[in-house]
Amino acid sequence: MTGLERFQDAFLKPELIERYWPDIVSGIAVTLQIAVAVVVTGLALGLFLAVIRSYRIRLLNLPIIVFVDIFRALPPLVVILIVYFGLPNLGINIPGFAVLWLVLSLVLAAFAEEIFWSGIVSVRKGQWDAARSTGLDHWQTLTSVILPQAIRICVPPLTNRTIAVTKNTALGTVIGVGEIMNQGTSAMSLSGNATPLMMAAVAYVVIFVPVVALGSWIERRFAWKRA
């Protein structure tokens, strides 16, 4: 057997590709579903918290800031393990994919809140003055005047952070969520061959390379517009 054949035998065995293809595809579906759910809930919650914070009510701001700091400082895997192993001990049983969705949503929300908030405070104070002086209330000013301007500044960092958090769906494999990586590694131990693992890796590359490219395109486009 030549080196190339041996390599192919270990990493790209056709019959294994054929056998585990459906598993990887179902993993892709799980990964995409969780990723989309995380993006939607995480961004919505982050925006919601930033809006609350804009009312500058001290009693509400303090918990928001603490929440944001904690979830920006903690490794997501640590939180995932705490929730996954901790809740059943309290008699609360939620499946792994829900834990993954919940934790990653909270992480994304924390980062998104911080980004939205920076965007809001970066809009000049005169904009608030002008809008309020014509009788718009806080909510109307925020939605019609401030956020439309803030969003432009927020989009590039938000894109990057969203991509980073969705990549963390791979952490689900640690708590047995049937996403791509989990399918790949379990098929690897079943078959005693690295081919399924390679398939999983390739799936990630195929999904995320375009996403990352889109992210840097957005970043560049917005940077250019601002200049």
Partner: peptide, 20 residues
């Protein structure tokens, strides 16, 4: 206050037009 404010026009040094 919002109802009153529209009765009180204000013009600023920096214009403060909405750029968008």
């Amino acid at each position: 206050i919002n109802a009153m404010r529209r009765r009180i026009g204000m013009v600023f040094q920096a214009f403060n037009l909405y750029p968008h």
